[in-house]
Nucleic acid binder design. Sequence first.
DNA 1: CTAGGGTTAG
Length: 599
Amino acid sequence: MTALPVATKAQTSYQKLLQTSSSTGLLSLIKSCTTKSHLLQIHAHTLRTSLVLDPTISFQFLSVVVALSPLTSITYSRQFFDQIEKPTAFHYNKMIRAYSKSDSPAEGFYLYRDLRRRGLCADAMASSFVIKSCIRVSSLVGGIQVHARILRDGHRSDSLLLTTLMDLYSNCRKYDEACQVFDEMPKRDTVAWNVLISCCLHNNRTRDALGLFDIMQSEIHRCEPDDVTCLLVLQACASLNALEFGERVHKYIEDHGYGGASNLCNSLVSMYSRCGSLDKAYGVFKGMRDKNVVSWSAMISGLAVNGYGREAIEAFEEMQKMGVLPDDQTFTGVLCACSHCGLVDEGMMFFDLMSKEFGVVPNVHHYGCMVDLLGRAGQLDPAYQLITSMDIKPDPTIWRTLLGACRIHGNDSLAERVVGHLIELKAQEAGDYVLLMNIYSSAGNWEKLTEVRKFMKEKAIQTTPGCSTIELKGVAHEFVVDDVSHLRKDEIYKMLDEINSQLKIAGYVADVTSELHNLGAEDKGHALSHHSEKLAIAFGVLSTPPGTPIRVAKNLRICVDCHNFAMALSGVYNREVIIRDRTRFHHFREGHCSCNGYW
DNA sequence: CTAGGGTTAG
């Protein structure tokens, strides 16, 4: 351990003050200490006069040291702590709390163990701080140990403590354990429900998160959602494309007087955008009095993903006129706008501007947009160069973006290299091989295609089933390829047949060459005609009045044929069709798509 | 004798 810093000037006026003050005077001097220099002088003084032995004084001083730790360091606080001869539980709690918020949260855990070994009483607070530490270092093992202690200590009905514990399990991806803690809680307040919803959101239970919004309000629980609940549920709506549910939450927000909260408005803007309802997003955005960088970024990204690249760039300029400084996420939106609309030169310009004029260091998302931009424009080699020249480690997503571009431009040799990189990262997924097979298939390279297929079979690599959802009256309906599980399946298939024949008259021809989702299918044409998005669309046509927009969310990329299908349908049936796939939105209107073939 | 806990915008 390094030597403690001490005051350099031997006799300052402050030290005189210290020496002449009574013990109550000293306490108030300590409490009012706000500068590092005074802190060091008090420290020296307490050491010289053995005042560290006095628990009240040492506690007060520890409080100040911890409070001023941004000026000194957590290590300094610890050094002082170690000088206290007989630290009490109070001292420990103070120090453990400090650690839980510091850059070395794990130390809090060791100190907690130390506290117990000394036989001091660990109260609920101490345990609470330690769990915080465990969350920070995502130590499930540590958390479980503390959990056991909590039960032994008889703190099993402390809601606040148990809520923290739920958050721990949630952060460690232990959904069931978090639920169990929730179930065993004697009393659950709104925050407990919020943590449960947050847990669903972060553990692939997004649909359950929506359900909880209603369950918590039901007769049995009678728990009022608050602003945080709304924030969480809006995120769930956005990721599920649940527009109607989102509108309900919007109404709830208005009815409960949260309408003016900027964080909620920003969330609404994002939710509406991500549900493909740009006009509603803009409505909320326009009504906001204080638009901050988050609001603008949400609007810019919203415009971008919905295919309004030029408008997104205009919004970016407008934002600067209003004196709001863009940050990293603003640029993610702007670059995304460029990549979705094929604005290669603009994209390069913004990428350059970003760091030079706004000091925003490009992150993996920015690079990802640039790779997408270059890749889609056919500049595959520069895109590859860009990835290899990054000063950050390429993540699987960025390689996958390039792989997508390889598919568009049918570059099989680069695609193979990219898959090689994914394998190197041990991140290759079924979808990557499917993409590779798509490339071989459209190039007519049947040998390689069979090779990959065989490889996948041998390794038993499971493909992610394509799944499309459509929300109707607040309920999400799910479809997979050739789905026969829906109650109205007969009507749906009849409708799909009718749509197909109508579209054929209008000149739509099924494209069976470029896609093969169903690996085992002998009859590709057949599998194609019952893709999940087509079933969802047919269901939409069937169950909504003419003219109603049809909104579908798909977990994978939409295939070329389904894209053509939706495009034709939007004209023939005069329906707006909005499909959100894994990478972007497709707005189909009057026989056209917002992506203008650039996709 | 002293202080102190949970969820949370793009």
